[in-house]
Design a protein around this nucleic acid. Structure first.
Lengths: 201, 201
DNA sequence: GTCTATATAACGATAGAC
DNA sequence: GTCTATCGTTATATAGAC
């Protein structure tokens, strides 16, 4: 019917909102229905169960992040350019979808077995090009002895941690919303420099 | 009675186990009772409600981390020594209580308002001594222009992120348990160097 | 203090009319 | 496709015997 897709989209959007904010266990089907402004029965009509609706949201969330990140890693840019691009990308994600990173990480920890297959079947893996690039930089003596995986996690850590631990940062530093945003902005400018200087030989 | 304290402690220990692993929403009072090997009614007899039992566990968790961390920051050690001590401390926490960091961060995000009062009333704040120490290093030109808050979050990020995102790290790098542990161990040796070189002028 | 039994409410899910 | 009504289950919490 005419409204079929519209309704399904409204459900999905509402489910994203609620699941990402409250997690699978904290989310209520009724709340999703309210958020979508439709009847609760419609959720089951379109997605059959809470589990299936959740998986749709979760998988879409992962696909918003990982492919793009791996794309940057596999490009022809220099290592320094890639660092800047990764930082830019994460800050873009935080801006358009602030709850997404914490949501994905939390749900993966809650049900590791559930998502291994999905991620493995999605062909998600670190591009060989990136690994060789880091190893070449090490071999040429331009950076210290460091594994590509460690280098990548360094960047991700510096970007994501203060976002995932938002409340913690705000409370222990007594930051209001404006000060917190300013803190993140200030970091963004510093992270590439910290990362690259940190791995100097 | 003779078993009073013993029972209350068994409940508390079991509650820690279950809450930290599954979160407030995912935890079940019955599961806590099973874990403690006592009757479910005992949970309410000693703690009145799930909420109160949870708060006891959460507050104990925060007190395991923050006071010790702030103690290190407020000591007379050099900045470099403090970095090493903070890294050591976090790795100690991960070892004895692997789920605690992710638990605290997740629950704070779920209910920010709930915990502001507790943390503020606990007098938790960054020691002035640490702030002045970083500012002095900057003024003396020994490190780049960086705020104490940023410097601290850099260390915490590098330590905690790969622990909080354990499943993510394991899956995208195809690490088994042994390789993951090795990865963390390798990081531990590198983090102080990365942090200090990163802030060189 | 510890147990059994049960109250009470909420949740996910479905049946069936339209 | 969309609604109302309701089923079946499970959760927290309490009452009351011992």
């Amino acid at each position: 019917m005419a409204l079929e897709k519209e309704t399904e989209e409204k459900i999905f959007t509402a489910a994203q909102e609620v699941f990402q904010k409250k997690g699978f266990d904290g989310a209520r089907m009724q709340e999703i229905a309210d958020e979508a402004e439709i009847n609760k029965s419609m959720l089951h009509y379109y997605y059959r169960s809470k589990d299936k609706l959740f998986m749709a949201v979760f998988q879409a969330g992962v696909k918003k992040i990982l492919p793009k990140l791996l794309g940057v890693l596999g490009s022809d840019k220099t290592l320094e350019e890639k660092v800047v691009q990764i930082v830019d990308f994460y800050y873009y994600i935080f801006k358009v979808n602030p709850y997404l990173p914490a949501f994905v990480i939390h749900e993966m920890n809650m049900h590791p077995e559930r998502f291994r297959d999905f991620i493995i079947s999605s062909q998600i893996q670190i591009p060989q090009k990136f690994k060789e690039q880091v190893e070449q930089e090490v071999a040429d003596g331009r950076i210290m002895e460091i594994k590509p995986e460690q280098f990548l996690i360094n960047i991700v850590s510096m970007c994501m941690m203060p976002v995932i631990a938002k409340t913690m940062v705000q409370v222990i530093f007594s930051f209001d919303e404006r000060e917190y945003k300013e803190f993140l902005k200030e970091r963004k400018a510093q992270i590439p420099e910290l990362i690259m200087k940190g791995v100097k030989p």
